[in-house]
């Protein structure tokens, strides 16, 4: 494999030079022990804002919600400890399992399609620089629309009986007579909506492609590698940290799909429960039925389930994600 071998040190020095002053303190390069100490100090200094945010804004509410998961909290009266009651109820809640099922389908089918679309388009855009600004903007535009009722209106119109999707399909001889009122077609609609808004991972892929040093391609060309070979041996390894990021984050995001489902299903999970995704159901429990205890229990079950998946991903990432900064 011709993975990203470290660039020649001489070159790197030229880039480093503007920032580097010959004079100044020489401590940093000293003994390894002292270096470790200074890194701890520097580490916490750089991390300070994040740490303040974690302890002041994030951790307290998270722990509070963990506590609520074991209570019957209903927003109006003080929470009372209820042990595992919420979790036991969840196990027997058919609506809950229905929401788990459709959410899993959405994640497993939607995420790979969206990522493939984002990567494919990013490669296309990276191929040429002429006019790419325009196309980049065009492809990103759908992701700019906020989650307002406008998107529900547009999306219903696209898949209605007279809409372009159905007209296009009937041109191919498939006639579904509109997707919107067919519960079985809601899932493909939701997935297509997610794929349509592929702008975020696309931009991240683009940024990643910009980081791939051009020499690697040149070297590969000199070796006589064809486009596909270059993609496999240069692009994919160099892009792997970004692919990993997009995969993880899109997966987490898909598990937590809320706004678009809530709007398209008019907040009720309809029609026929087809938009009752995990967090939509959680929200209904929390704010419509005022069962914040139950909702918190649901939230922590999701955290643990997705946490395990994320952990596995991190583990496997060691074998396929190559960081340019890691010494070989």
């Amino acid at each position: 494999m011709t993975t990203g071998s470290a660039p020649a040190p001489q070159n790197t020095r030229t880039t480093a030079e503007p920032g580097a002053r010959p004079a100044g303190n020489r401590r940093a390069g000293g003994h390894p022990k002292r270096k470790g100490n200074s890194e701890t100090v520097a580490g916490y200094a750089f991390l300070a804002p994040w740490l303040v945010g974690l302890f002041a804004l994030t951790l307290g509410p998270m722990l509070f919600s963990l506590y609520l998961a074991f209570t019957d909290y209903n927003l109006f009266t003080a929470p009372e400890w209820s042990g595992l009651a919420n979790f036991e109820r969840m196990a027997g809640d058919t609506v809950f399992w229905g929401s788990v099922q459709i959410t899993l389908i959405y994640v497993l089918v939607g995420t790979p399609i969206k990522l493939a679309a984002a990567l494919g388009v990013a490669m296309l855009l990276n191929y040429k620089s002429k006019g790419s600004g325009f196309f980049r903007s065009a492809f990103y535009a759908p992701s700019l629309i906020g989650a307002s009722v406008s998107i529900a209106i547009v999306w219903r119109a696209m898949f209605s009986a007279e809409g372009p999707v159905d007209s296009g399909l009937s041109f191919l001889g498939i006639n579904l007579g509109g997707w919107v009122g067919v519960p079985a077609l809601i899932m493909p609609m939701m997935i297509l909506l997610a794929v349509w808004q592929f702008g975020a991972p696309m931009v991240i892929f683009l940024a990643g492609l910009k980081q791939v040093p051009a020499e690697l391609y040149e070297a590969a060309s000199v070796d006589g590698a064809k486009a596909w070979r270059k993609f496999i041996s240069v692009t994919l390894p160099m892009l792997s940290p970004v692919i990993f990021f997009n995969l993880l984050l899109e997966m987490i995001g898909a598990f937590q799909i809320f706004a678009s489902a809530y709007i398209i299903g008019s907040g009720s999970g309809g029609p026929a429960g087809a938009t009752n995704f995990y967090t939509v159901y959680l929200y209904t429990r929390a704010f419509t039925n005022n069962q914040m205890g139950y909702a918190s229990a649901m939230a922590w079950v999701l955290l643990i389930a997705v946490g395990i998946l994320a952990f596995i991903l991190f583990r496997t990432s060691k074998s396929w994600v190559h960081y340019g900064g890691d010494t070989k």
Binding site: P9, A16, A20, R21, A23, N25, M238, P241, G324
Partner: peptide, 17 residues
């Protein structure tokens, strides 16, 4: 994903974090 050599070179030149 950045080559670490850059940092190390700078550190040798005496740069702080």
């Amino acid at each position: 994903n950045l080559p670490k050599e850059l940092d190390e070179a700078a550190r040798i030149d005496g740069c702080g974090h």
